[in-house]
Design a protein around this nucleic acid. Structure first.
Lengths: 196, 196
DNA sequence: CACACAGTAAACCGATCGGTTTCCAGAAGC
DNA sequence: GCTTCTGGAAACCGATCGGTTTACTGTGTG
């Protein structure tokens, strides 16, 4: 096992993986065993299992976002930066290890929208919408607020499709997002696909 | 409570509601108590809790579909029949008691795609896609297969949005589906109903 | 009447749950 | 040396898990 990182880091890493793979109903015994941390240490570092759920979700946020969002060094047009999110998601789907958006999955498992983990999930979804919104504003889109929400909906819909293991269709996320952007007149530059 | 229906019906009803509201991790004791059925009877009627999960999902299928799909007596154009699904979903969202698509939620909680409940969920999603596909073919849409999947993705995305309780935006499902249909050239005017 | 059957209430089983506590090994500070 | 602190191993707690069994109460049907 990993004995290099601190017990806190080991716990957050193991929690992020096991809560995602097996669900938040996995026991703290199994969790601590996987992390190589005693339950005593765990309950010294976190007040409860619920707090560990929330903190593990929050701690995976930055890496998850850099995985999905193109960085500022990517100077492509806003439309391409938006579609890049769906390209990466589609890629994760075809790689087969994508079990859906961990934030949505956890929120569904927790049921209680006031649970600290649900609050983190809501926050992350808002960050994704905010990213879309910023790019749409850059692209000069009309009604960027609605369009950003619609893109988030497509993201979560693709995620749900991966969960239920429906018949795979490569690039459906990118295609759907692109169709929406086309309909809203958000172009990359040269290609103008007016609906009709 | 309800003592009118048979123990089996009472169990399926209670399971459909409690598994949806509280998640499949609810105990069989609480479930049987809510249904007014003894555990002995439950295990005579169903081999295991997992089987009850699957059967309760399957049993709610017909009523859930008549709730969402317009019936054959609705002779509006195919496009309107498609949008009616999203209108009803949007309405359930604003009513506030919509906790997401029960099939997707259950599949996420179960994690195992081979679980009988996950199989039922996959089957239901396919039926929704099939409904869209039939209507799109009636409307003479190109690439009805892809479009039907895209509409299903929007449906599930709206569902996920309801779960995480993101900022509400009325009618976003209908608007997104309509934008997609517009982009594909599926108009209200094209009433390609089967017999004319 | 007797008999069978359907079904509930509740005890019971071993396992596991979230959480606490005890005990002990090792490293750091003096 | 001795002490103090971190942290792992494991026992322990009451509650609950899925599932089984016993005991009893109806309610027909001959």
């Amino acid at each position: 096992m990993t004995t290099s990182a601190t017990p806190r880091e080991r716990l957050l890493d193991a929690a992020g993986e096991l809560f995602y793979r097996d669900g938040v109903s996995i026991g703290v015994d199994a969790l601590c065993k996987a992390a190589g941390v005693s339950k005593k240490s765990m309950y010294q570092l976190f007040r409860s299992k619920d707090e560990l759920i929330a903190e593990s979700l929050a701690s995976r946020g930055p890496s998850y976002q850099t995985l999905l969002h193109p960085g500022p060094e990517d100077d492509r047009p806003a439309r391409d930066r938006i579609l890049a999110v769906f390209e990466r998601q589609d890629q994760m789907v075809v790689e087969g290890n994508y079990l859906g958006c961990p934030y949505v999955s956890t929120a569904i498992e927790l049921k209680n929208p006031e649970h600290p983990g649900s609050v983190v999930a809501r926050h992350f979804k808002q960050q994704l919408t905010d990213f879309f919104h910023r790019e749409l504003v850059k692209a000069g889109a009309e009604d960027a607020g609605t369009l950003a929400i619609q893109l988030t909906i497509i993201f979560d819909g693709v995620s749900a499709r991966a969960v239920v293991r429906a018949q795979p269709l490569g690039g459906v996320g990118v295609a759907t997002a692109a169709a929406l952007l086309d309909a809203a007149g958000v172009r990359s530059g040269e290609l103008a696909t007016q609906a009709g």
